[in-house]
Structures are given as C-alpha cells and as structure tokens.
C-alpha cells in the first residue's frame, strides 16, 4: 500500500534529462492542526532548478505543505508534524536545526505583497546585512542593485530607493518582495499564490520573472489558477483532502492524468 503510494507521488523523471537532481525530499510527512489531520503521508521529490506547482481545491493542504518546507508552520501553536523533509539530504526538522537558518536557505513570497514599512533600499538590504552576507557600503549597494535587477524592478525604482516600499503599486511591491528574497541568496523560493492579489498585467510580469529565476533557484509555487500552472510549471502536484493524488510533469498532468480525481479537478467538475 505504502509502496504504491510512493510510486504515485514521485514524478517520473524526464527521459531526456539525465542531469535532473533531487533538491527536496519529503518522506512520510503527516501534519495535524490540533485534531485536524491536514496532511496525510506526503512523499515527494522536488527537482532542482525547476518550477514545481501545487494545485488543488482550497483547504486541500497545498499551502500547508508549502509552509512545512521552510518551517513557517512552527509559528502556529497546536501543530504536530511527523515525518521528514530534507534539503540536499539535510533534514530541516532534525533536532538542533534552527528554523531561522532554514528560512534563510528557503525563501518565501506571499499571497499579499508585504513590503516592510521602510525604504525600498532597506527592504532589500535588511536581511543580507543581518545575515552578514554583505557589509554596509558599496558591496551592499551592489547587492541591492543586482537583486532589484533580478526581480526586474531596478529600472522602475533606481531613482527612488529612499522612498517607502509601501508606496509602490501592487505588482511592484510583489517584485520588491521577490527582490528581497533573492538578496538573501536562498537555494529555494517558495511562492504562495504570488499573483492572486494582482492584476493580469502584473501577473504576466511575475510569471515571466519566475521563468527567468529558475536558472538560479528551485521554485515551488502554490496556485489556484490552473492556467498559471501550465504556463510556468515543469512539474505539477495535485492535492486533495491532504493527500497528493498525482504528481507528474505538468504536461502529463493536464493532458493525460492518471487518476480520475485529477481529471475531474482539471476539467472543473469540482474545486
């Protein structure tokens, strides 16, 4: 039974891509919110420098699982987590691992753009300075510039770095949040419905940004929008009631789903 589960959960590797490497491994992961069994026996391999998307109806556990990957669930009391998640073979839930250090390695972008009530410059420079990645001065300026360029925001804000980040438009704010995330130089970027609060044009910008970011980062994105998954994701996992029903190359999931539940969802019969 369990063996079978793993077979379903772990996506088939692309046949023509020999150098595909596993970045994140989830094994036998279970999660409870007090008595509510929110994630059931999750087993999953996520590949390096690819975009993996999680889809499913609301309440299916996709965001919860995403938050497990950088231990954001630690903030909620009453959460019990069993099982293992490793990054490059290092268990992030191992005793002695500081969740703060985990989050430095695994950044996150949220549904609502949430810039800090500080200047654009400080928004980006804050974390690298704290983590001692750079010292104050020209190194830091360079990092801020590169990060903003990486997020495709530099041209728009280079003359107003001192202005508050909250004064930018929604789409710009979200790119600022991406810039401050990549400034920390994480390995993995988690995105929790990053475009659901944005207009279509900003969404398009963010999506093309995601495609360019996968050159350097492993990206995991939760989305409500199935079209978005087909546009950006290399792999897609379909969650239902706390379980992974199907996980495969995005094309396979949408063209040739193996499980009838998946088909029902992508054809809009529920969700």
């Amino acid at each position: 039974m369990e063996q079978q589960n793993i077979n379903i959960n772990v996506a088939k590797r692309e046949k023509d891509n020999k150098d595909l490497r596993v970045k994140v491994e989830a094994r036998d992961l279970d999660l409870w919110y007090s008595d509510n069994h929110a994630l059931r026996n999750i087993n999953m391999d996520i590949y390096e420098k690819k975009i993996t998307s999680f889809i499913g109806a609301s309440g299916c556990g996709k965001s919860t699982f995403l938050r497990c990957l950088n231990r954001m669930n630690d903030l909620i009391s009453d959460v019990t987590i069993k099982g293992k998640i490793s990054v490059d073979g290092h268990n992030i839930y191992a005793p002695g691992v500081d969740e703060v250090a985990v989050r430095k390695k695994i950044g996150m972008v949220f549904q609502q753009p949430n810039p800090f009530p500080k200047s654009i410059y400080e928004n980006v420079a804050y974390a690298p300075l704290m983590h001692d990645i750079v010292k104050k001065g020209s190194d830091c300026d360079e990092l801020v510039e590169n990060s903003l360029k990486g997020a495709g925001l530099w041209e728009e804000v280079k003359d107003k770095l001192k202005e508050p980040g909250t004064a930018l438009s929604g789409g710009q704010q979200q790119r600022l949040c991406i810039a401050r995330t990549i400034a920390v130089k994480p390995d993995i970027i988690l995105m929790d419905e990053p475009t659901s609060a944005l207009d279509p044009i900003s969404t398009q910008t963010i999506e093309s940004l995601m495609l360019s970011l996968k050159e350097q980062f492993t990206i995991i994105v939760v989305t409500h929008n199935m079209q978005q998954a087909t546009r950006v994701a290399d792999y897609t996992a379909f969650f239902h009631l706390g379980e992974i029903i199907e996980y495969n190359e995005t094309e396979q999931i949408f063209i040739n789903p193996q499980v009838s539940k998946t088909e029902q969802y992508i054809t809009g019969q529920f969700g």
Binding site: V102, G107, F110, Q112
Partner: peptide, 13 residues
C-alpha cells in the same frame, strides 16, 4: 498585519 511579520521571518530573521 501578520503577513508583514511573516515576510521578515521568511527571510530568516
């Protein structure tokens, strides 16, 4: 707002 706090925590603060 909670999400601003989470933004900082997610950066490893």
């Amino acid at each position: 707002p909670k999400n601003v706090k989470q933004g900082s925590l997610a950066l490893g603060m």
